[in-house]
Design a protein around this nucleic acid. Sequence first.
DNA 1: GTGGTCTAGACCACG
DNA 2: GTGGTCTAGACCACC
Lengths: 123, 123, 123, 123
Amino acid sequence: MADLFHSSKPIYEQIAELIKKQIIRGELHAGDKLPSVREMAIEVNVNPNTVQRTYRELESMEIARSKRGQGTFVTEDTEVLAAIREEMKAEILQNFTQQMYEMGYSKEEIKRGLADFLKERED
Amino acid sequence: MADLFHSSKPIYEQIAELIKKQIIRGELHAGDKLPSVREMAIEVNVNPNTVQRTYRELESMEIARSKRGQGTFVTEDTEVLAAIREEMKAEILQNFTQQMYEMGYSKEEIKRGLADFLKERED
Amino acid sequence: MADLFHSSKPIYEQIAELIKKQIIRGELHAGDKLPSVREMAIEVNVNPNTVQRTYRELESMEIARSKRGQGTFVTEDTEVLAAIREEMKAEILQNFTQQMYEMGYSKEEIKRGLADFLKERED
Amino acid sequence: MADLFHSSKPIYEQIAELIKKQIIRGELHAGDKLPSVREMAIEVNVNPNTVQRTYRELESMEIARSKRGQGTFVTEDTEVLAAIREEMKAEILQNFTQQMYEMGYSKEEIKRGLADFLKERED
DNA sequence: GTGGTCTAGACCACG
DNA sequence: GTGGTCTAGACCACC
């Protein structure tokens, strides 16, 4: 299997983002069991310790909960889950607009730039 | 002076982006002299080695050129400078749209999300 | 039923402590029958294996004894039972004072700290 | 060197508590540099990764801050540092009194028990 | 030299 | 079989 990950960010973070996006897209729901550390490690072709670290990270964000001997589960707290979507969206937008501002674009130019970009990519 | 930089990216890259954005915004022009390594180090409050690394990076991208005993200068090659703007813009847009797609948004939702975001921030 | 247990200590130990405290408080007496493994498992909402482990632990401390086909019983040996109280108390006190010493408190400060704490909690 | 650690708690947590207690006792101050990961690893006779984990943990509690290429430092935020002392004390007291209550002791008995215990240990 | 990530592999506690 | 800890050792990025 080819490498799924960029070298610019830690792999464990990229796996965490993968999972967060699955939750956001509704592919994972509150209370769902995540793949076991070992399964996930095979699936994404990394060392189990790396996945372990991802799960620990998700746990500290209260997105997941590990139960000894049972597995790791998406939190039951739907408020947290709802918040993730908005946080992530806001962060991406904030990041994007700030970079465009720093390049000297105005709001209108940013909107136009995006529209043009999306049009080019139409297929 | 407080820390200007995120810990997620190497500082030398963040400085390079700072300089590239100054060029793009027209605050730095072809042939302009960059601050000396030491000056820049003091200005942004980092180790001179870090600035050295930034300048090396800019040279390898052909954005800057160092002249022995004189300093480091923005390239005279205006084509390169013109290209930077478009490359950077395309990269930012590509990055942004991909992330939004991965969250499950459609083109229309992305545009609307951006418009809403920019409206909220109005002041 | 909600989780009764901390994740910091093994659940089987926490259950053992529960039972020891029931004995100490006089809610369980020498020779009393403990709930069956299954009953207890349901009562505290854990896996029967975990309760099994607790009972094994209590047996090895000679606090309980299992009789084949009949169940698990609090030991008849009242000396053992009497000893538990003092052991447990000494351990808790030892543990507490050591931690306070390590924080740099003197004996007097420990006593005062306790008195203040108990006063605050008055209701 | 003999082992400094109990097996009941993770070593990385025990190291964290060691450091927190040094701060509380005033042996470490705001802004002080902690030993490097490798130094500390030798000092307490564990693997550098274990110390790394401790420092990461302290960082997530905002007690320490790691700076790339420079080392790990006690936070400058004296409010956080002041809070640690009180939190830790409250946690120890809470823990202690709850255990004594569960054994069936009254407030007065707890205070007397402590006083007796401290007296026995006088030397 | 400093912290940070990752792998490989072992061992343990829990269910 | 599940997660959790720890070691050993390598490699990288940064200063």
